[in-house]
């Protein structure tokens, strides 16, 4: 049984201008000890789906799912109190902005120790000992002194290390890292990533790594889930994904990867992720897809089989060719074709 098993998760927000579906029927599984990466452009619902899992969304969000099993517990049925026994203990999360994610009014030691106090009921002395141990584990020098430091005395990289120490304090079975390096300097990024990998292999926890960065995906993940506009459009083992992407969106992401460029940030594909007001009919990627046909605009694409990477597409790619595509003449964006 997988550690995490989500089936058909949707999140709807009540907004002033009507309901908005930020996550649309996403399924994913994570095994113990596995690293699964979620990639996709900004606004594709990566954070929202994981926040839904953690129970951290505001009250304006409505969460529906066929199944949300974690470690054998159905999360959807749990009361808030029962859920808090899991969140922060067996399932932890770190965030994109380490500096603003730490409370400026409390010491590092206090903030890490809180989880130990609430979940493990450690006394003050044991907490302090464990916090120092954790700070050493995440590579913070002079840990015994840093316990009493306040967040404003730490750099961004140090803050993220503290966040990681906080997240692994109770030895979680699953760690969700939401773009843990995006806000950091390039040199620090590599260090933090390395730390996460090392901790993951030492503890054998499952790791969900949300990222923009295909380079990070290639180096770290076992399996990749590609999200677009709230939907999962493809899922594959990492080698397969880079060798033979099945969804045109994945292919476009990879094609735009600048091989020789210094930056490995997610390259841009013409156009933007549709938001609340410009949701296309049919396939959500159709306004930006060079293979899009009349059918793509009118009919919602099916989920393909395992061999086709569960691609959400009418014409899943195989070896770079759209299977069952009527030919270049049928595409509705000839301009995109030329660019690509």
């Amino acid at each position: 049984m997988p550690l995490l098993d989500i089936q058909n998760l949707s999140v709807d927000f009540k907004t002033a201008s009507g309901p908005f579906r930020a996550v649309d029927g996403v399924s994913m599984t994570v095994d113990a000890g596995e690293i699964v990466s979620i990639v996709g452009e900004s606004g594709s619902g990566k954070s929202v789906s994981m926040l839904a899992l953690m129970g951290l969304l505001p009250w304006t969000a409505t969460i529906t799912a066929d199944r949300m099993l974690f470690d054998g517990h159905e999360l959807a049925g749990l009361s808030a109190r029962q859920r808090r026994r899991i969140v922060g203990k067996d399932m932890a999360m770190i965030f994109q902005e380490p500096m603003s994610s730490l409370n400026p009014c409390f010491t590092v030691g206090f903030q890490i120790g809180e989880a130990l106090k609430v979940h493990l009921k450690l006394d003050r002395k044991a907490r302090r000992r464990r916090v120092i141990e954790l700070l050493e584990m995440v590579g913070i020098p002079a840990a015994a002194e840093r316990v009493d430091a306040f967040p404003h005395q730490l750099s961004g990289g140090m803050s993220q290390r503290v966040m990681i120490a906080m997240a692994i304090a109770c030895q979680p079975k699953l760690l969700i890292a939401d773009e843990p390096t995006t806000a950091l300097d390039v040199t620090i990024q590599a260090q933090i990533l390395e730390l996460l990998m090392q901790l993951q292999s030492e503890t054998g926890m499952g790791l969900v790594l949300i990222t923009h960065d295909m380079g990070v995906v290639a180096e770290t993940a076992h399996r990749v889930s590609v999200q677009y506009a709230g939907q999962k459009v493809e899922e594959q083992a990492v080698a397969g994904l880079f060798a033979d992407p099945h969804h045109p969106y994945t292919a476009a992401l990879l094609a735009a990867l600048p091989e020789r460029a210094t930056s490995r940030r997610l390259p841009s594909i013409p156009g933007v992720v549709p938001g609340q007001f410009d949701r296309p009919t049919g396939c959500l990627f159709s306004p930006r897809c060079k293979f899009a046909t009349e059918r793509c605009v009118t009919k919602v694409p099916p989920v393909q089989g395992r061999q086709a990477g569960y691609a959400l597409c009418h014409y899943p790619l195989a070896g770079g060719r759209p299977v069952g595509h009527p030919g270049p003449g049928a595409t509705i964006h000839p301009d995109l074709q030329e660019v690509a």
Binding site: M54, L56, I86, G88, F95, S100, S101, P104, M166
Partner: peptide, 15 residues
Amino acid sequence: SEDYIRTARAKGLSP
């Protein structure tokens, strides 16, 4: 609405 409040909730603290 600050990030550190989300962090506190992610620790499983009571409201």
